[in-house]
Nucleic acid binder design. Structure first.
Lengths: 147, 147
DNA sequence: TATTGTTATACTCTATAACTATA
DNA sequence: TATAGTTATAGAGTATAACAATA
């Protein structure tokens, strides 16, 4: 039996509080929303930023490689890359006849610097909520969780 | 200067590898997709499950309280709760004239048991990828990150 | 006037299937 | 035949604004 709530203003009991997947999701949504807000003035969305940074670190890479590395399906890469090209951040060259070699434009490299500073600030804002103990190995643990 | 890639089959360099928000997002998406697959046979989606479990632990709670606790906007709660009622898992009673008191049906309680067992299995599957050291305090760290 | 639920609508990210062109 | 990119479409979750009914 589950007893009905003794109503007043008591907060609800959260049975998912100890669930890894649930807490992961809540934090992820929070950080993504925060990132989206921070990125808006730069004219970029989170997914676009991940592509921009990856191309910046791998000039000449193919579109499919980018998607595979980021976990973005080929079909979804099309509009994302097209958007970055349209905004003048990315350039596309023939690599193979059926594949594109992607690289950043000068404008794209400049924007990448701004994005990295923005990411540094966001990282700092969130990491300040953790003590050193909790911070150590957190990212490594997340990477491990991806198996 | 960024040197072009020496093409062969070398994996790309990932400049987001050390970013907390990025790794959080990747793991979250992975676990959500996995959860979605596991839940499909039960006729539930992840968001519905969070509502179902919360109501199960707080019989008589109002719809708005549920949304607030879970971070789901009032507007989005409407269809989610309506779906759970339609499936016969949740019952709605007048509480206030303008607010609904939600509770589980017998069918909803039975389904909750299955869901919890399913979540236990998922948790175990992912936690097996971590050593004890990394596991300790991980959920606590995530909760802290939500400020 | 503030709260609760509701409707309508849009955006972001993800997923699948089928198509084209090239290797 | 297999690969790279593309198109079309759908789904899940989230967001905002405006409205009705009630407190």
């Amino acid at each position: 039996m589950r007893k009905p709530r003794s109503n007043g203003a008591a907060p609800l009991v959260d049975p998912m509080a100890a669930r890894l997947g649930y807490q992961l999701r809540r934090v992820s949504v929070l950080m993504m929303a925060d990132l989206g807000t921070r990125l808006a003035p730069l004219g970029l969305r989170p997914a676009e930023v991940s592509i921009l940074l990856l191309i910046g670190a791998n000039a000449g890479c193919r579109q499919g490689e980018v998607g595979e590395t980021l976990g973005i399906k080929r079909a979804n890469m099309v509009a994302l890359v097209a958007g970055l090209i349209k905004k003048g951040f990315v350039a596309r060259a023939r690599a193979d006849g059926r594949s594109h070699a992607l690289s950043l434009t000068a404008k794209g490299r400049a924007r990448t610097l701004l994005v990295n500073r923005l990411l540094d600030r966001q990282e700092a804002a969130f990491q300040s909520r953790l003590d050193r103990k909790a911070l150590t190995g957190l990212v490594a643990a997340l990477v491990s969780l991806r198996g």
